[in-house]
Design a protein around this nucleic acid. Structure first.
Length: 154
DNA sequence: GCCAACGTTGGC
DNA sequence: GCCAACGTTGGC
């Protein structure tokens, strides 16, 4: 079992949108970065836990937890010519882009802000707190996951 | 296969 | 909204 962090812009898709989805479940679509694709396709497994991170809009930070309910499969929107995530490079027989299915687990009673995480001992090596870290699908260590869970329980 | 130009992400 | 830090593209 592994831990991850998925970034999303809450005005596009927030943790509340996930919660309000049918069965509180959705396909994490539209990732168009090869490093993130590799994680979605090869590394992220069913039952893994995922921090949902709100980017771009204040307050920046982790807002809750989701669970992976289906491991990597091809992003169908990459094949849809009329969809904004269409990519002619992605072929049915050799898909370029992948996603996973996630299900809402919990929303924290407060946002664990980026600022707070930067100031927390033990999170200084976390990918998220590094300068210029833009990867939208990031690995989180068990230690980091536990520290953040503890912050959320405060 | 280098690298300049361009596009995107995301904190501030 | 600005712009630094990345990623990608395409001419050579």
């Amino acid at each position: 079992m592994q831990y991850w962090l998925f970034k999303t812009e809450p005005n596009v898709f927030s943790i509340d949108d996930l919660k309000n989805s049918p069965k509180a479940t959705c396909f994490w679509e539209g990732v168009r970065n090869y490093q993130a694709r590799n994680l979605l396709r090869d590394s992220i497994q069913k039952e893994d836990l995922v921090f949902i991170y709100h980017s771009r809009i204040e307050p920046l930070g982790i807002v809750g937890i989701a669970k992976v309910t289906k491991s990597g499969y091809p992003d169908p929107f990459a094949f849809d010519k009329n969809h904004k995530y269409f990519d002619p490079k992605s072929k049915l027989e050799s898909p370029t882009w992948y996603g996973v299915e996630v299900t809402f687990v919990e929303k924290f009673s407060r946002t664990i802000t980026l600022k707070e995480m930067k100031e927390t001992t033990g999170l200084d090596k976390m990918m998220l707190t590094q300068k210029g870290s833009r990867l939208s699908i990031q690995p989180v260590s068990e230690k980091e996951f536990k520290i953040i869970q503890k912050l959320a329980a405060k």
